[in-house]
Amino acid sequence: MDHTKHLWRVVLILVLAGAGAIIGRHFLIPKSFGEQGFYRYDSLGDYMTQPVRHGGDAACAACHKDRADAKAGGKHATVSCESCHAPMASHATTEAKTADMPKNRDMTLCLWCHQKLRARPETMPQIEISEHLAALDPEDAKKADVCFNCHDVHNPSMK
Protein backbone atom coordinates (compact mmCIF):
# COMPACT_ATOMS: atom_id res chain seq x y z
CA MET A 1 0.00 0.00 0.00
CA ASP A 2 1.18 3.47 -0.81
CA HIS A 3 1.62 5.55 2.30
CA THR A 4 2.32 8.86 0.65
CA LYS A 5 -1.21 9.51 -0.55
CA HIS A 6 -1.81 12.38 1.89
CA LEU A 7 1.39 14.07 0.82
CA TRP A 8 0.36 13.98 -2.81
CA ARG A 9 -2.93 15.58 -1.90
CA VAL A 10 -0.99 18.38 -0.24
CA VAL A 11 1.12 18.78 -3.35
CA LEU A 12 -2.03 18.93 -5.46
CA ILE A 13 -3.55 21.61 -3.24
CA LEU A 14 -0.38 23.67 -3.34
CA VAL A 15 -0.14 23.40 -7.11
CA LEU A 16 -3.78 24.40 -7.51
CA ALA A 17 -3.41 27.30 -5.11
CA GLY A 18 -0.25 28.44 -6.83
CA ALA A 19 -1.81 28.23 -10.27
CA GLY A 20 -4.89 30.04 -8.98
CA ALA A 21 -2.74 32.81 -7.58
CA ILE A 22 -0.77 33.22 -10.80
CA ILE A 23 -3.88 33.28 -12.96
CA GLY A 24 -5.77 35.53 -10.56
CA ARG A 25 -2.87 37.93 -10.52
CA HIS A 26 -3.07 38.30 -14.28
CA PHE A 27 -6.48 39.80 -14.12
CA LEU A 28 -5.58 42.12 -11.31
CA ILE A 29 -2.61 43.75 -13.00
CA PRO A 30 -3.77 47.10 -14.31
CA LYS A 31 -3.85 47.59 -18.05
CA SER A 32 -0.87 49.71 -18.87
CA PHE A 33 1.30 48.36 -16.09
CA GLY A 34 4.82 47.53 -17.15
CA GLU A 35 4.56 49.17 -20.52
CA GLN A 36 7.42 51.58 -19.95
CA GLY A 37 8.77 50.39 -16.64
CA PHE A 38 7.54 49.08 -13.37
CA TYR A 39 4.51 51.33 -13.10
CA ARG A 40 1.10 51.98 -14.59
CA TYR A 41 1.80 54.04 -17.69
CA ASP A 42 -1.70 55.51 -17.69
CA SER A 43 -0.83 57.22 -14.45
CA LEU A 44 0.96 59.84 -16.58
CA GLY A 45 -2.41 60.59 -18.10
CA ASP A 46 -3.92 61.08 -14.65
CA TYR A 47 -1.39 63.80 -14.03
CA MET A 48 -1.77 65.39 -17.44
CA THR A 49 -5.48 65.88 -16.92
CA GLN A 50 -5.03 67.80 -13.70
CA PRO A 51 -6.43 71.29 -14.34
CA VAL A 52 -3.99 74.12 -14.96
CA ARG A 53 -4.57 77.00 -12.53
CA HIS A 54 -1.90 79.58 -13.29
CA GLY A 55 -2.19 80.89 -16.83
CA GLY A 56 0.91 83.06 -16.99
CA ASP A 57 1.26 86.72 -17.94
CA ALA A 58 0.57 86.21 -21.60
CA ALA A 59 -2.83 84.79 -20.76
CA CYS A 60 -3.62 87.83 -18.60
CA ALA A 61 -2.46 90.18 -21.34
CA ALA A 62 -5.01 88.68 -23.71
CA CYS A 63 -7.68 90.74 -21.92
CA HIS A 64 -5.73 93.28 -19.87
CA LYS A 65 -3.32 94.68 -22.39
CA ASP A 66 -3.08 98.08 -20.70
CA ARG A 67 -1.97 96.64 -17.40
CA ALA A 68 0.37 94.19 -19.03
CA ASP A 69 2.02 96.99 -21.01
CA ALA A 70 2.38 99.18 -17.96
CA LYS A 71 3.97 96.35 -16.07
CA ALA A 72 6.25 95.32 -18.93
CA GLY A 73 7.78 98.78 -19.09
CA GLY A 74 8.56 99.03 -15.40
CA LYS A 75 10.50 97.46 -12.60
CA HIS A 76 7.86 94.83 -11.98
CA ALA A 77 8.20 93.38 -15.45
CA THR A 78 9.36 90.06 -14.06
CA VAL A 79 6.67 89.88 -11.39
CA SER A 80 3.80 87.68 -12.46
CA CYS A 81 0.31 89.12 -12.40
CA GLU A 82 -0.98 86.04 -10.66
CA SER A 83 1.57 86.10 -7.88
CA CYS A 84 0.02 89.31 -6.51
CA HIS A 85 -3.56 88.70 -7.61
CA ALA A 86 -4.63 85.07 -7.69
CA PRO A 87 -4.37 82.11 -10.02
CA MET A 88 -6.17 82.66 -13.31
CA ALA A 89 -8.44 79.67 -12.73
CA SER A 90 -10.18 81.50 -9.91
CA HIS A 91 -11.05 84.37 -12.23
CA ALA A 92 -11.63 83.21 -15.78
CA THR A 93 -11.63 80.33 -18.20
CA THR A 94 -10.27 80.62 -21.73
CA GLU A 95 -13.74 81.72 -22.81
CA ALA A 96 -15.15 83.90 -20.08
CA LYS A 97 -14.70 85.64 -16.79
CA THR A 98 -16.07 83.60 -13.92
CA ALA A 99 -15.32 85.78 -10.89
CA ASP A 100 -13.69 89.03 -9.92
CA MET A 101 -9.95 89.01 -9.57
CA PRO A 102 -8.93 89.88 -6.03
CA LYS A 103 -6.93 93.06 -5.64
CA ASN A 104 -4.78 92.69 -2.60
CA ARG A 105 -3.72 96.17 -1.45
CA ASP A 106 -2.25 95.14 1.87
CA MET A 107 1.36 96.12 2.42
CA THR A 108 2.26 92.59 3.55
CA LEU A 109 2.06 91.83 -0.14
CA CYS A 110 4.77 94.36 -0.91
CA LEU A 111 6.82 93.36 2.09
CA TRP A 112 7.03 89.75 1.04
CA CYS A 113 9.58 90.98 -1.46
CA HIS A 114 10.73 94.34 -0.09
CA GLN A 115 11.04 93.91 3.65
CA LYS A 116 14.68 94.25 4.57
CA LEU A 117 16.05 90.83 5.37
CA ARG A 118 19.63 89.87 6.11
CA ALA A 119 19.37 86.88 3.80
CA ARG A 120 18.05 88.92 0.87
CA PRO A 121 20.57 89.72 -1.87
CA GLU A 122 21.63 93.36 -1.67
CA THR A 123 20.68 93.98 -5.28
CA MET A 124 17.06 93.67 -4.23
CA PRO A 125 15.45 97.02 -3.27
CA GLN A 126 14.53 96.60 0.39
CA ILE A 127 13.06 98.83 3.06
CA GLU A 128 12.89 98.98 6.82
CA ILE A 129 9.21 99.77 7.01
CA SER A 130 9.34 102.14 10.01
CA GLU A 131 12.17 104.18 8.48
CA HIS A 132 10.52 104.12 5.10
CA LEU A 133 7.26 105.56 6.40
CA ALA A 134 8.88 107.99 8.87
CA ALA A 135 8.33 111.00 6.65
CA LEU A 136 4.63 110.30 6.20
CA ASP A 137 1.70 111.54 8.19
CA PRO A 138 1.47 108.98 11.07
CA GLU A 139 -2.24 108.49 10.38
CA ASP A 140 -1.50 107.51 6.79
CA ALA A 141 1.37 105.29 7.85
CA LYS A 142 -0.98 103.13 9.85
CA LYS A 143 -3.10 102.21 6.85
CA ALA A 144 -2.55 98.81 5.35
CA ASP A 145 -2.59 100.15 1.82
CA VAL A 146 -0.21 103.02 2.53
CA CYS A 147 2.22 101.85 -0.16
CA PHE A 148 -0.27 102.80 -2.83
CA ASN A 149 -0.18 106.41 -1.76
CA CYS A 150 3.10 106.83 -3.53
CA HIS A 151 3.59 103.80 -5.73
CA ASP A 152 1.77 102.42 -8.71
CA VAL A 153 2.07 98.69 -8.33
CA HIS A 154 2.15 97.90 -11.97
CA ASN A 155 4.98 100.33 -12.50
CA PRO A 156 6.25 101.03 -9.04
CA SER A 157 8.49 104.03 -9.34
CA MET A 158 7.06 107.10 -7.57
CA LYS A 159 3.69 108.21 -8.91
Binding site: H3, K5, H6, R9, I13
Partner: peptide
Protein backbone atom coordinates in the same frame (compact mmCIF):
# COMPACT_ATOMS: atom_id res chain seq x y z
CA UNK B 1 -7.16 15.25 7.20
CA UNK B 2 -7.63 15.67 3.44
CA UNK B 3 -9.62 12.48 3.40
CA UNK B 4 -6.67 10.22 3.99
CA UNK B 5 -6.96 8.21 7.19
CA UNK B 6 -3.69 6.37 6.92
CA UNK B 7 -1.93 6.26 10.29
CA UNK B 8 0.16 3.21 9.69
Amino acid sequence: SLGVYDIS
